[in-house]
Every structure is written in C-alpha cells, then in structure tokens.
Computed example of a mutant assay.
Amino acid sequence: MTVLPPADNCQSTAEFPRVLFFNVNGSGMGHLNRCLSYARRLRGRARPVFFSLASAIEIIEEMGFEADYFVSPYWSSNSTFAWNSELAVRFGMVLERVRPDAIVFDGTWPFQGFLAACEAYGSPALVWSNRGLLKEGAKTVPVDEARFDLVIQPGELGAHESEVELARGGKRAVVPPVCLLEDDEVLDRAAARGALSLPQNGRFVLFALGPGNLKDVAGIGHGLIRLFESAGFQVVWVRAPISVRDVELPPGVLPLTVYPLARYLRAFDAFVGAAGYNACCELVQSGVPSLLVPNGELADDQTRRARMVADVMPAVVSACETDEQRGAAVGELLEMLNVNRSRPAGIPLNGASLAAEKILALAMGRERRH
C-alpha cells in the first residue's frame, strides 16, 4: 500500500490545539477520507488525533497521525444499546487521554454513545461534518444541529463557501468539494505510470466500482471488462482497503491496492467506477474521462452527482445492468477520450482547506460560542 508521507515538522505538537476526529465506517472510504483531508491541512498548526470506526486504520497511522480503532456497529454482534454504551465508555477514555480542544464527527448519524461521551466530558467545541445530497425520502437524522458549534457540509460540484447561523449560537457552513490532495500533489501521466510501474505506452482503464460490501459489482464489472479488453485496453481493478470480499477477477486483469488513489488517476486513459463523493471530486480534479455507474443502494443520490460530473467534464452515466447498456456506455466513453482533460474554470475544489480553517478557529477558541 502506498501512502503520502507525513510532512516534516520540527515544532513540537505539544503546544498545538488538539483536534480529535471521529470517522464512521461507511460503505466506502468517504468518511475517513474527509477527516484525513481536514487533518492534512491542519498539520503543523494543530495535533490531529483519530478515533476510527473504519477498519483501514493503518492508513491513518502511515500518514503520521495517532489513531484508536473501535468496531463499527455494522460488524458488531452487540445490540444497538450495548454498542452505544461501550462506545460511550471507550470514547470517553479517549477524550480524557487526548483532552481535545475540538471534536470533529464525520458521518450521517451522530451516535448516542458519541454524544453522551461528549456531554459527560464537556466538549469545548463540537463539529459535525455531514455530507449532503441525500435521495428524496431518505431517513432524517433525529439529531439537532444546534447541539454542534459548527456543522460543515462538504459541497457538491459548483458549491461555494457560505454560512448561516444556527440556534444556540452555532453555524452551518457549506464549503466547496473536499479533496484529499492539492492539485500539485496529483501526478501527471508519465509520473503516475512510473510510480505504478506501468509502461508509458499502452491504453489502461481503471475500475473502481467499490468494495462490494453493499452491492454485488462482479456481474457489471465482468461485462465491462470484456468490452474494454476487446477495445484494446489493459484493465486495472482497484482493491478497496475496507473490502470484506474481493471480486474474483478474470485472467489478465491487474489488481491494484494504493492510497490515495487520486494521486495516480492520470496514469489511466479512462476510469470506470461508482459515483461516490470522493471519486467524483477527484475525477474532476484529475480530468480523466469516466464511466460512472451510480450505486442505487446508498442513501446519497449518486445518479444526480454523476450527472453533475458529466455536465463539466467528459463522463458517461449509466447503470450498466444489461449488455445493451454496457455496450452503449463504453462506446460513448471511447468517443470522448480525445477531449481536453483540463478542469473547467470556476469549479473550486478547496473545501478541505476552508473547513480546516474553521475547525482550527474553533479549536483555538476564536469562534467558540459562549
């Protein structure tokens, strides 16, 4: 596994404000990825510490951050009440050890055990990073935003920074799309292929259809693989770090496990994947022509997000559930491969930096409510 090394920092972190990140374990890497995006922008100015429900905790540590792991409720045999009770104790112990100046929760549903531990500890600043774009009719979260000092909504493509006041003195802030990497950290085609030990010549397509934890992607994937191989592409298949079962790959398909994937996207002539938040933001950042296959089993509206991508860059949106759909989608994408890959003007992707500044201000007490 490849990760970005921690930045050199000769200044002691003891004098920095402490920010404790709590990321849930979703169907993909989104919650962890956003917390790492914020933490990387805070490096050298704060001491980020993680409490992670995501099983890929080694990624956090290899990036140079401290981390504790607690099993996700989806993988626990405990009842909801028992799991939340244990969470309250475990997270309370972490709060006593870290003594954070700010706590950042990234997830759709703030757990009762988490909220109980924060209330008992007397959290000085509480932040909820809550991605939007839910489907119509999706369950509403019975947690009052006013319990938080700051609610950060990582925006979709085209979103700009804005703030509104919440009851009890808090704020809700929309920020532009959140990306893990800055633009200059994304390798160009030659450098990315060199880093992945891929030949400079040849046509490569990257498949990232998700870990398959909530949706069986093998059938769709195998059908698309055959089409791209027939068109002369070498297929590379991403193995997700949090996957609980690997898709059996046909002979000749190259498996790839790398993080962060965004760093290497330009090595590929085309991308095939689900329309998760991270993937869509990173594809616009890299400009790689894409076939987006929305996952309809998730709470977020991936079809709508995929169409946003297709509005600003070469991208095809298709469910790819039948041979006819797959054939038409691949044919349309192949016609797009010579389109300029530069990012369209006017699409900010600096949400991570803006969110980090707001978190830091809270941690330092400059914007804490009374």
Rank of each mutant, 00 (worst) to 15 (best):
R172A: 11
I103W: 07
T322V: 03
T80I: 15
G210V: 04
S290M: 01
Y74S: 12
L333V: 11
A240F: 05
P177W: 03
K171G: 01
Q112M: 14
A54Y: 13
E185C: 00
L87P: 01
M63N: 13
L283M: 10
P294D: 05
R326G: 04
F204N: 02
L209N: 00
F50V: 05
V151N: 04
A82S: 15
N213W: 08
G327P: 02
S162Y: 07
Q325W: 02
T303L: 10
W128L: 07
S55V: 11
C280N: 04
A125V: 09
R40C: 00
R245S: 14
N340I: 00
Y74N: 12
R304M: 03
A262L: 09
L180K: 00
L214Q: 15
R245V: 12
L180E: 03
R90G: 10
Y277D: 05
A192K: 01
T2F: 14
A46D: 08
A190R: 11
K135Y: 07
G64N: 09
L133Q: 14
D188W: 08
M63C: 14
A167V: 12
C10R: 15
R343E: 03
S162M: 09
Y38L: 13
Y38P: 03
A361S: 09
R193L: 01
E357Q: 07
N130R: 12
F114V: 09
G132L: 14
P5G: 08
A310L: 00
W75S: 14
K139L: 14
P314D: 05
S162N: 11
F207K: 00
E156L: 11
S353W: 12
P73L: 10
L227C: 03
V3S: 06
I57R: 15
N33F: 05
M364T: 13
R45Q: 13
V94I: 14
N201M: 11
E229N: 08
G158L: 05
V141A: 10
L333P: 04
R47T: 08
V98Y: 07
A191F: 09
P255D: 05
G137N: 08
H160P: 00
A363M: 11
Q112P: 06
G170W: 02
E61L: 08
R45S: 12
A120C: 10
L115W: 00
N130D: 15
L283C: 07
S37V: 13
V293C: 04
C179N: 07
N278W: 00
V127Q: 10
E182G: 11
Q285E: 10
A102Q: 03
V238H: 06
G232Q: 05
